[in-house]
């Protein structure tokens, strides 16, 4: 069994009226099945409101399923006794870099998780040193987070999660508020962690460029997983992606246009090199 597994997962947001009675329910996650192996790099795509963030919050036991079950490393997230173990196993990075950094000094923020876990002081320091080095932020350890760029802040947030020594990190649109350079910086750091530390990565995003190098992609729409496969498989279905309010990288789109015009081009072209070699063969 994989590191994260979901079976018929469902979640309803409840809306209460003034008397505290349930007025309406809204299905945010609907019949989702996942099986993620340790060490995989998974991307979850979906437009705003597709339920991908709600799903992410389940992996950290921040939300509990209304229906079905989600296991993190064989622990049922619904079992309260395991909540803290689950949160340590599956760390979470959020969208807004400012709203997840707690301390006024970078290294103290990275130490926040281990402090909460009750790690002895000397070990906290080793973990903090380690985590800062892994995301390349050691030089900034004494800085105030307010003086950092968006990309740097997100790397600090990632270090804060890594210091808890998780086996899996869930990143909930970590690049949505960053500029292109910050985005690249964060995605590069995450890929490196995946490769060198063998951390399972679950990246939630709506930027297509960021999922090209993922092992597998899930596409969500109105709470359901509507497509899944390798990036190549997913991106060969251009029209379907557009239907789910998503798009594809320009090179994939160009290849698709050329194919529509009768050229003999394979589906799911992801890089400039691929297209050039097909056209100039």
């Amino acid at each position: 069994m994989g590191i994260i597994k979901a079976l018929k997962l469902g979640f309803d947001y409840l809306k209460y009226d003034d008397d505290g009675n349930v007025e309406s329910t809204q299905r945010a996650v609907d019949d989702v099945n996942l099986d993620i192996e340790a060490g995989e790099f998974i991307a979850i795509l979906g437009h705003n409101g597709s339920g991908k963030s709600t799903l992410a919050k389940h992996m950290n036991a921040l939300l509990l399923p209304s229906e079905g079950t989600l296991w993190v490393d064989n622990m049922d997230t619904a079992s309260e006794a395991d909540t803290w173990k689950i949160r340590q196993k599956a760390g979470m990075v959020f969208q807004n870099p400012d709203n997840q950094i707690i301390a006024t000094v970078v290294e103290e923020d990275v130490g926040f998780g281990p402090e909460n876990m009750g790690i002895p002081t000397a070990d906290i320091w080793t973990r903090v040193d380690d985590a800062l080095q892994k995301v390349g932020m050691t030089t900034y350890r004494h800085h105030s987070p307010n003086k950092l760029s968006g990309g740097q802040k997100q790397r600090v947030a990632i270090a804060g999660v890594m210091a808890m020594r998780p086996s899996c990190i869930v990143l909930d649109e970590p690049t949505a508020m960053l500029d292109p350079n910050g985005r690249k910086e964060v995605i590069k750091a995450v890929h490196e962690l995946n490769k060198t530390e063998n951390v399972t990565v679950i990246l939630i995003t709506h930027y297509m460029e960021e999922v090209i190098d993922a092992d597998r992609v899930y596409v969500m729409d109105s709470g359901k997983v509507v497509m899944q496969g390798t990036p190549k498989e997913i991106f060969s279905r251009v029209e379907e992606l557009k239907h789910y309010r998503l798009d594809v990288p320009q090179v994939t789109l160009l290849a698709h246009e050329l194919k529509k015009n009768g050229l003999d081009i394979p589906d799911g072209i992801l890089t400039t090199e691929e297209l050039v070699s097909v056209l100039c063969r």
Partner: peptide, 9 residues
């Protein structure tokens, strides 16, 4: 900023 691809277009 912050919009999904369709919203952006």
């Amino acid at each position: 900023a912050g919009l999904d691809p369709k919203g952006r277009d």
